[in-house]
Design a protein around this nucleic acid. Structure first.
Length: 428
RNA sequence: GGAGAGAUGACCGAGCGGCUUAAGGUGCACGCUUGGAAAGCGUGUGUACUCGAAAGGGUACCGAGGGUUCGAAUCCCUCUCUCUCCGCCA
């Protein structure tokens, strides 16, 4: 959510920034409603002050035996007018909040305009592996090695699901453990949140109202939308401190979660994205920070470095891009993507989005802090990053690590956990 | 799922139509006191909107929403949540 006071003061600048993300921007309706609302609040408050004053007067006059009939009549009228005004104020409040809630975040000053094509390469690490044999793709590899069972996964969950089995399940678990231990070592607090969340959680995250249809919704018999299944742990973690006021000394707060992530991905199936590149359920460890505004830039770089380090320690070739305004999530001011190389697709795919929301989510969820000695509260900044999602790491691992004999070499970080430095070729 | 109880400020807790500017206590902050501390005494102690350059006003908020009334924490209605007991269950 954007700051309405900022919009009032710098309408032109805000509209220009929004145009980087929206085709049509016109805030005049919003500002008209805001002006009308403030005018009404002023008049209604005056009438209420009068009412309070007279209400104190009446029992005094009665006690003194003075007549109060004219006052009572006046107050009856005053109360009726207040009621009408309050009603209109409520309607305006709702309209303003709704309109404000649908506006995306302002891109940070160093974010390039444009869509995907305008993304800026930041750096890359390693080299794409060269194969002197016929390299296989991840679907072929994980299936023949007995790591992932797509057919049985689909039998259980339908299209878009898979299951990990045997060594594949152990590999998946080892990856997640590797991530978890890395964040613990860096002093992040481990949080295992509910997976079914209330509407309010999705609103705070910036997921709702715009993207209500992207998540799996749980509906009650008559009350409609009661919960949704989290599409990322970010939607849970941002709500950790919702409606709280933190002290300056408590910042930054650093958390991480492991959860499966559930997404509808309706109509997004592409033949190229078969396997586990885009499914309805995948595993992810999410890292999160709440910081003071002046520290969020540093926190953002810290999260980027943490996520990158994980990919590096897995020995995977990757690159980092700064996303252009229209390629990043609408809630975020600035986002880096870490993309890992998938040889069979001849393409880099996102394994981590590292984002700084500035105060956009904090405003939606009223997450504030107070500086030492200050009375006024301020909104915190919120930052999130995958650290990491496994559903593209595993394909990258098996494809980049595959050997001529059909086995797959494992990086030390995983070999230690699995007690073997390679996955042997399928015996058949 | 059944039955009952409750929701008041950072916390505990009173209040049950105008004597409430939400009593009293605890905590916290500052001051007095002290060699230092404790105790004691004093003062202060929320969130938000709005007007204002500021100083400072005004308004709202006693779970949420609506109603009755000149006036509601207090009366009425609806909803939500929490707790206790019983049942079922991983």
């Amino acid at each position: 959510m954007l700051d309405l006071a900022l919009i009032r003061k710098n309408r032109e600048a805000v509209e220009d920034a929004l145009r980087m993300r929206m085709d049509e921007v016109d805030l005049s309706g919003l500002l008209d409603r805001d002006a009308r609302r403030r005018e009404l609040v002023g008049s209604a408050d005056e009438l209420k002050a009068r009412r309070n004053q007279v209400s104190a007067e009446i029992p005094r006059l009665k006690k003194a035996g003075e007549p109060v009939d004219t006052l009572l009549a006046e107050m009856k009228d005053v109360s009726a007018r207040i009621k009408t005004m309050d009603q209109e104020i409520r309607e305006l409040d709702e309209a303003i909040r709704d309109e404000l809630a649908r506006l995306p975040n302002l891109p940070a000053p160093d974010v390039p305009a444009g869509g995907k094509e305008a993304n800026v390469p930041v750096r890359s690490w390693g080299e794409p592996p060269q194969f002197d044999f016929a390299a296989r793709d991840h679907v072929d590899l994980v299936t023949s090695l007995g790591l992932v069972d797509y057919e049985r996964g689909v039998k259980m969950g339908g299209n878009g699901f898979w299951l990990y089995r045997g060594t594949g399940a152990r590999l998946e678990w080892a990856l997640l453990n590797f991530f978890v231990e890395s964040h613990l070592a860096d002093g992040y607090e481990f949080v295992l949140p509910p997976h079914l969340l209330t509407y309010e959680c999705g609103f705070t995250a910036g997921q709702f109202p715009k993207f209500e249809d992207d998540v799996f919704q749980i509906r009650g018999e008559s009350q409609g939308f009661t919960h949704f299944v989290l599409p990322t742990a970010e939607t849970a973690l941002i709500n950790f401190h919702r409606d709280e006021i933190l002290s300056e000394a408590e910042l930054p707060r650093k958390y991480f979660s492991y959860t499966p992530c559930y997404r509808k991905e309706a109509g997004s199936y592409r033949a190229q994205e078969r396997g586990m590149i885009r499914g309805h359920q995948f595993n992810k460890v999410e890292i999160f920070q709440f910081t003071a505004p002046e520290d969020s830039e540093r926190g953002h770089e810290e999260l980027l470095e943490k996520a990158e380090r994980l990919v590096r320690e897995l020995g995977l070739h990757y690159r980092v891009s700064l996303l252009a305004a229209r390629d990043a999530s609408a809630s975020m001011a600035k986002t880096y993507d870490i993309e890992v190389w998938i040889p069979s697709m001849n393409q880099y795919l996102e394994v981590s989005s590292v984002s700084n929301a500035h105060d956009y989510q904090a405003r939606r969820g009223s997450i504030r802090f107070r500086r030492e000695g200050q009375k006024q509260t301020e909104f915190v900044h919120s930052l999130n990053a995958s650290g990491l999602a496994t559903s593209r790491i595993l394909p990258a691992l098996v494809e980049q690590g595959q050997q001529a004999d059909g086995s797959v070499l494992l990086p030390a970080a995983l070999a230690d956990r699995l007690g073997a430095d390679r996955i042997p070729a399928a015996s058949a």
